[in-house]
Design a protein around this nucleic acid. Structure first.
Length: 721
DNA sequence: AGATGCCGGATTTTT
DNA sequence: TCCGGCATCT
């Protein structure tokens, strides 16, 4: 119990209040992660809870690993039987365990957004839909939102929707889900949706997990969506031992379906909630925190709170104006070079920007300055063409119905099998009720002799690998495939500059597979290759950071959540970038952009540099930049603009608006997604979307009578949940 | 089947 | 500016 002395009174309360619902409103740098770790240790060592009975949900795989590492190091806790992971990885494990009750096998493929895109293209072709009228991006977003609200296509088809666009969208949705199942595949959202719906529909399975996970902790609760809320609710509703930790000021994922009202309504969703506010910041000096506080006060959708700190005497955030984006990058590189020459590790330096596209100039500048850097995000390692290709081979061997992978590999490397042949193979497969894999072993009548031979040769090759797949180690299999296809020499002999790095990446992939094999903890009777494929689908770039290399880190502000660095450089503080132009006309989105900057600033332990440019290329042509409106919201005396040759104020400071800075009122959180409401004419219905706040919010409601309506909140009443 | 070239459109953030 | 999609040619 001695370890409780390491904690402040609030943290101690969080740690020792093990029974019943606990809400922890934890500001940036207030020791949130620490509290979760200590709470887990307390549950295990003091309260003698069996590790099997604990579920911890983190926001990234990396955070999960870190947590395990620290539990092990500081408390000598064996983390083997502890369930720690992201929502997605935890759902993946559950679905694999319960596949008998589900419409797919445990070998299911996980489709990333590239696979998803390929799928939609096939569907568009089949349904003869013009992507001009139904832009892919828009449609995938809508469908993703439906899944995150647990609305299945069948639910929608019950409604007699008149609107052509909506009707077509649901047709696509339905077809998409059918296609995925036919391919034994799930997308990211499906992982959550199938699990939540399974718990909802099958009480004995729900009970099994509710009994298993007697103690549940969720980190970053402000960024959970409805499916995640429901999922956790179904697990915790019986025992109520649920501890959620989050900060409404750091909610930055609403575009992904995250619903801030999950955290704001926690005290209503659960009974007798014990609430702890942690407002002492242990990370940043007062000079930095004051600026952050001043900024975030401009948001109206928040719990009123103010972070404070004992850490004093440091510099205020510096604001600098550079001529263009090259100068901006060069400036950061020079500053970091200077710090580095005085003994600062590059590991303590962070570059943050709003969009991935901004990273390129920084790469350049750091390369010039001979400073080692690592980029997080952008094109994920596993999304690169050469890696997707080899993964597609592996996937197809395991999952012989995976059309997306099949169409990827059938003619790569080129073996003179084109799309006509592909279509014929698919038809033959369909007609004879075969898997694609088996069809390749046949003589397909509609093919001419030459083509048929090529197809059969390919089939033989796949057959050979499939036998290896169940016999040899993953790494050997991968090597075998790469050798047989002569991929390395293919890329090395290429004239295309893009191919230069490809053979290197392939080698790295081999190494990664080896690492996986070495660290693999056999959890079920699932073949290792299945686990490998599924786990790499959920890997992010953050997980692939090489910790051994001392380097400056470059990433988007979204990726920076939960991290801390001594020196933080925040670039591109310009209207259009931050706040992003796409958020200009929407107050909610503007507030989210503001939170993004708040998150960025509060990463810093020692210094913050805010930069913007005089001029920046937009759509290819240079145009004058406008300094971010957020800069004007921070009081003059909190920002250092003096003794600074770069600074000159170019835009007139807009008048600050008077803002409602009070606590979120009942009115503001009146409706939320999933709530049941009733209407005098349409009867009962469930809310699918809320636009605006308060009683007068615009609601999208699906009524039990079948209508899907947009309605002003004042015309409905809330029913029981 | 594959290479070439033109046009139009899009540009946020990620598991 | 760059990328992807489409048409056309070989």
């Amino acid at each position: 119990m001695d370890f409780l002395n390491d904690l402040n009174p609030q943290q101690r309360k969080v740690v020792t209040t093990t029974e019943g619902p606990v809400l922890v409103l934890a500001g940036a740098g207030s020791g949130k992660t620490r509290s979760i770790i200590y709470r887990t240790a307390y549950l295990l060592n003091t309260a003698r809870v069996n590790p099997n009975n604990i579920l911890i949900v983190t926001f990234t795989n990396k955070a999960a690993q870190e947590l395990k590492k620290r539990l092990h190091r500081s408390f000598h806790i064996a983390t083997y039987s502890l369930w720690v992971g992201t929502f997605h990885s935890i759902c993946m494990r559950i679905l694999r365990e319960e596949y008998e009750h589900l419409p797919f096998t445990k070998d299911f493929s996980i489709f990333d957004d590239l696979d998803q895109k390929a799928t939609f293209k096939m569907i568009y072709k089949k349904l003869e839909i013009d992507s001009k009228n139904f832009p892919l991006r828009k449609i995938t977003t809508i469908i993703s939102n439906q899944k995150n609200s647990l609305v299945s296509p069948q639910d929608f088809f019950k409604f007699n929707e008149e609107n052509f666009f909506t009707k077509t969208t649901y047709k696509i949705y339905l077809e998409y889900q059918k296609f995925l199942l036919k391919n034994n595949a799930l997308d990211f959202d499906d992982l959550l949706m199938y699990t939540a719906i399974m718990f909802h529909d099958n009480n004995s399975i729900r009970k099994k997990y509710a009994d298993r996970f007697k103690y549940v902790m969720i980190d970053e609760y402000q960024d959970t969506n409805y499916a995640q809320f429901k999922l956790i609710n179904l697990i915790a509703m019986d025992h109520q031992n649920l501890c959620v930790v989050g900060d409404d000021d750091q909610a930055i994922y609403s575009w992904r379906g995250a619903n801030i009202s999950n955290i704001l309504n926690f005290e209503k969703d659960y009974k007798n909630v014990y609430t702890v506010k942690m407002e002492q910041n242990y990370r940043s000096p007062k000079s930095i925190l004051s600026a952050a506080n001043c900024l975030i006060k401009n948001n109206s959708e928040r719990y009123a709170k103010e972070l404070w700190t004992d850490i004093r005497s440091a510099e205020r955030p510096k604001l600098l104006k550079l001529d263009d984006e090259h100068q901006e990058a060069k400036f950061a590189a020079e500053m970091i070079a200077q710090l580095h020459s005085r003994g600062t590790s590059l590991n303590n330096c962070l570059i943050l920007y709003r969009t991935n596209a901004q990273s390129r100039v920084f790469e350049n500048a750091f390369y010039q300055a001979k400073l080692t850097y690592q980029i997080v995000g952008g094109v994920n390692f596993y999304q690169r063409k050469e890696i997707k290709d080899i993964v597609a081979y592996l996937r197809f061997l395991i999952n012989p119905n995976d059309e997306v992978s099949f169409s990827r590999i059938i003619n790569f490397p080129p073996r003179k099998i084109g799309k006509v042949t592909l279509k014929k193979i698919e038809n033959y497969t369909h007609k004879n009720q075969l898997t694609l894999f088996d069809a390749l072993q046949h003589d397909i009548p509609s093919l001419n002799k030459k083509t048929s031979q090529r197809v059969k040769d390919f089939g033989k090759l796949l057959f050979k690998w499939q036998r290896s797949a169940y016999k040899v180690e993953i790494t050997s299999l991968i090597k075998e495939i790469i050798d047989d296809l002569e991929l390395i020499s293919l890329y090395d002999s290429s004239n295309d500059p893009k191919d230069i790095a490809r053979s290197e990446n392939l080698k790295e992939f081999v190494t990664a597979s080896k690492e996986f094999t070495d660290n693999f903890e056999q959890e079920t009777d699932t073949p290792m290759i299945t686990s490998f494929l599924q786990s790499i689908s959920l890997q992010t770039d953050m997980d692939n950071l090489d910790e051994e290399i001392e380097s400056v880190k470059l990433m988007t502000m979204h990726n920076a959540k939960g991290l801390e660095f001594d020196h933080v450089f925040i670039a591109g503080l310009e209207d259009g970038l931050l706040p992003h132009s796409r958020s200009f006309d929407n107050e909610h989105q503007l507030e989210e952009e503001r939170r993004l900057l708040y998150v960025a600033i509060t990463r810093a332990r020692k210094t913050v540099h805010l930069t913007y440019t005089r001029m920046r290329p937009v759509f290819g042509s240079k145009s004058l930049s406008i300094p971010s409106r957020f800069l004007m919201e921070i009081d003059d005396d909190l920002i250092d603009t003096e003794n600074n040759r770069y600074y000159d104020l170019m835009a007139p400071r807009p008048q600050k608006k008077k803002k409602n800075r009070s606590v979120v009122t009942e009115n503001q959180k009146f409706f939320r997604i999933g709530q049941i409401v009733s209407h005098s004419k349409f009867g009962n219905g469930v809310i699918l979307n809320v636009d605006g706040k308060g009683k007068a919010a615009k609601l999208s409601v699906s009524f039990s009578g079948g209508q899907l309506k947009k309605i002003i909140g004042t015309y409905v009443t809330r029913g029981n949940e």
